[in-house]
Computed example of a mutant assay.
Amino acid sequence: MHEPIYDAVIIGGGPAGLNAALMLGRARKNAVVLDEGRPRNAVTREAHGFLTRDGIAPGELRRIAKEQISRYPGITFMEDTAQWVTGADGNFQITTSQGVILHCKKLLFTVGMKDRPLNIPGLTEVYGKSAFVCPYCDGWELRDEPWVILSNGADAMHFIPLIAGWTDRFTLCTNGPDGLTEAEREDLRRHGVPLYDTPIRSIESEEGIVQQVLLEDGTAIACRAIFFRPDLRIGSDLPQTLGCEVTEAGTVVVDEFGRTSVPGVYSAGDAVTMRHQAIAAASSGAMAAAALNNELNLDAWRNHG
């Protein structure tokens, strides 16, 4: 008995992958959404900035999405991990960690990003509860509260004017050499921004809510929120293994339609950009799925004309 050949396999089941599945289901395509069930935003209690779903729990957003997608019989969900991909456009083969082999015509990587280990003691305990990476996602709930910004160099000088729109009570901790010019330090002094370059000993919290940042010299900085830039890696190395071009930052290079440098392979969502917003990822997945579907239809037209 021959294995079925799906129109597409979507590797990754976050907002990008789910919206792609919705588009392909409505386009009458047969596709599998392959996802390990461990999303990066599982640490957060609420997702924000997603129209009609502001404040929803990330798991609930996925539940509703799957419920709505289930109306379309062509879409199948598998909780598994893609371990290996071989083949070429029109005939890809995916082997999963559970030994399942899937055959498909097109591939769509929506693998997102994963956090590398957080190297500051106590940061893991507050991440997603009172330590965040995006003020657009979580700044409103912490407006006017005292924040500590963990950053340095050019990243810090980019971030600080941005977050000043949510609170004017913040301190910059660089956890070592600040990487700033004297002109930048003077700019911080002029705006009354405290700067500490002493390494951080620990972040002290109660039930996930940060109380203070303790430096190695004993300085304690009271705060109710921490914002920091995470150290991220792409959620899977399969795109690169397959030959897709990637940037120095590790994101997959795609054109405006989500096409990678490998024929028949698409990518969308956080895997292709450093601008991480759930609603933007969903939009990216929808557009890539539409382009993938158009290519499938054109292939069928040419082959049966």
Rank of each mutant, 00 (worst) to 15 (best):
F77M: 13
T86L: 06
A82T: 14
E79G: 00
T76I: 02
K66R: 15
Q93D: 03
Q68Y: 11
G90I: 09
V85W: 08
T96E: 04
R63H: 11
H103N: 11
R71L: 08
D89E: 14
I69N: 04
D89R: 14
D89M: 07
T76K: 12
G99S: 05
Q98K: 10
Y72W: 05
I75E: 03
S70M: 01
L61Q: 07
R62I: 05
S70D: 10
P73R: 08
M78R: 15
F77T: 12
G87L: 01
I94H: 08
T81Q: 09
V100M: 07
G99V: 07
I64P: 01
S97H: 12
I75M: 00
N91R: 14
M78V: 11
V85H: 08
T81G: 01
F77Q: 13
I64N: 08
M78H: 13
Q68C: 06
D80Y: 08
W84G: 04
I94Q: 07
V85F: 05
E79I: 10
S97K: 14
Q93L: 02
V85Y: 04
I75V: 12
Q98P: 00
E67T: 13
I75F: 00
A88I: 06
A82L: 09
N91L: 12
T76D: 01
Y72E: 05
A65Q: 07
A82E: 10
L102I: 13
G99H: 02
Q68L: 09
A88G: 01
V85N: 03
Q83G: 11
A65V: 00
T76C: 07
I75K: 00
E67F: 06
L102K: 12
Q98G: 10
D80P: 10
Q68I: 09
G99L: 02
I64F: 06
A65C: 04
R71K: 13
Q83L: 12
A88V: 05
L61F: 13
I94G: 03
F92M: 06
E79H: 13
E60F: 01
I101V: 15
Q98M: 05
T81V: 13
T96Q: 01
V100H: 10
I64C: 06
F77Y: 14
Y72S: 05
A65Y: 01
F92P: 12
M78Q: 12
W84E: 15
P73G: 00
I69S: 06
G99D: 03
G90W: 02
A88E: 13
F92I: 04
D89Q: 14
W84C: 10
Q68F: 05
G87C: 04
L102P: 13
T96C: 04
T96A: 07
A65F: 01
H103Y: 05
E79V: 10
T96K: 06
I64M: 13
V100N: 09
N91K: 13
G90N: 08
R63Y: 03
Q98W: 00
R63L: 11
